[in-house]
């Protein structure tokens, strides 16, 4: 993250009103709000919130890019139809870890036209965050994506699109300042990493069995993870003969996740599935191998009903407790 090069401007008092006014014609506004039940959700709002740090939404904003059940196409017996066009959305108050997750998803879905269409329709405005107990982010570690980053007195442009927006609002901007993005100063605990050879050698380790014994395979860890993107393909046919193919959020702990035609299961038990999830989060996959896909947002740790902690497993492996 080369934030010394990010253009930053001091803002004049009415800047946010001007920004909202400028975007209102083209965009829906989305922001994180804490509901009466105490849960923080990213939701449609009437206007951009004044306070930008309302905490991490339980389900990250991947839900806008990869909806839980997303139609890919439908067929009515005569013609194929593409999904409806996506609304333009401006998302406010996105924390740094989620901006890193966005960068990650952008790489993974670089060639996915539906993702790209949704992505083009999002304007993402980052905001400062207040680390919680489970946070383990590495703000300097990986690149981030997004368009703007706002605090109460400054705004940074993170992309060409962000730059273009600021250009339109030049009269509400003050001087350019050389100022880094405000990062969380105190993260409760650094994320535990592990070297890949040590992980590879752990195949037969009892740690996987022990740590996965309590796993309920409820799927929550990946539902809340900002970089989990596994999906299943489900076909659905209406009684009138209209068929729709959907991609639906999946989870590596589900019994069908690694099962293939003929009934073979590449990961037949929870120990193998936990090891797989650990590998994916700590080392990534494919061309991104070697870069953790975990951004340290701590959502899985907070949401897991049985407190499975990938960092604790890394620490155990590092300590040779196999």
């Amino acid at each position: 993250m080369k934030d010394t090069h990010l253009p930053c401007f001091r803002i004049k008092p009415d800047f946010y009103d001007a920004l909202a006014h400028h975007l209102a014609a083209d965009f829906e506004f989305w922001a994180s709000l804490v509901g009466a039940d105490g849960l923080c959700r990213l939701q449609l709002v009437a206007s951009p919130p004044e306070n930008t740090s309302s905490g991490l939404p339980g389900i990250p904003f991947k839900k806008l890019l990869l909806p839980p059940a997303e139609p890919l196409w439908s067929w009515d017996g005569k013609t194929f139809q593409s999904p409806d066009p996506q609304p333009r959305r401006a998302v406010f108050g996105v924390a740094l870890c989620d901006l890193q997750a966005l960068w990650y998803l952008d790489q993974v879905f670089a060639e996915d036209p539906l993702y790209q269409e949704r992505r083009q329709h999002l304007l993402i405005v980052g905001g400062p965050c207040q680390p919680a107990d489970q946070c383990r982010c590495h703000p300097d570690e990986s690149p981030l994506a997004g368009d703007l980053f706002q605090t109460h007195d400054h705004i940074w442009s993170l992309s060409n699109r962000g730059h273009a927006v600021l250009k339109e609002l030049a009269k509400w901007l003050g001087a350019t300042v050389d100022r880094p993005l405000p990062k969380p100063l105190q993260v409760p605990k650094p994320r535990a990493d592990i070297r890949e050879p040590l992980f590879r050698a752990s195949t037969g380790s009892a740690i996987w069995q022990q740590s996965s014994q309590s796993c309920l395979a409820c799927g929550v860890c990946s539902a809340v993870c900002p970089t989990c993107y596994c999906y299943d393909m489900i076909d659905h046919t209406d009684l009138d003969g209209k068929s729709t193919r959907q991609r639906v959020w999946d989870n590596c702990f589900f019994s069908t996740h690694a099962k293939v035609a003929g009934g073979h299961d590449f990961r037949p038990d929870r120990a193998a599935r936990l090891r797989f999830r650990f590998e994916h989060k700590k080392f990534g996959f494919g061309p991104l191998r070697g870069r953790p896909s975990c951004v340290g947002c701590g959502r899985c740790l907070k949401a897991c009903p049985v407190d499975i902690d990938l960092d604790q497993i890394a620490e155990q492996l590092n300590a040779g407790e196999a």
Binding site: C218, T237, F254, T256
Partner: peptide, 26 residues
């Protein structure tokens, strides 16, 4: 609907929890 296409419907094995979280329920 699936039968009208000549197939059985997909039997999923994902738990209620996953749907509950997806709906962002407490």
């Amino acid at each position: 609907g699936a039968l009208s296409c000549g197939v059985w419907p997909t039997q999923r094995d994902a738990p209620v929890c996953m749907e509950c979280r997806t709906r962002e329920l407490r």
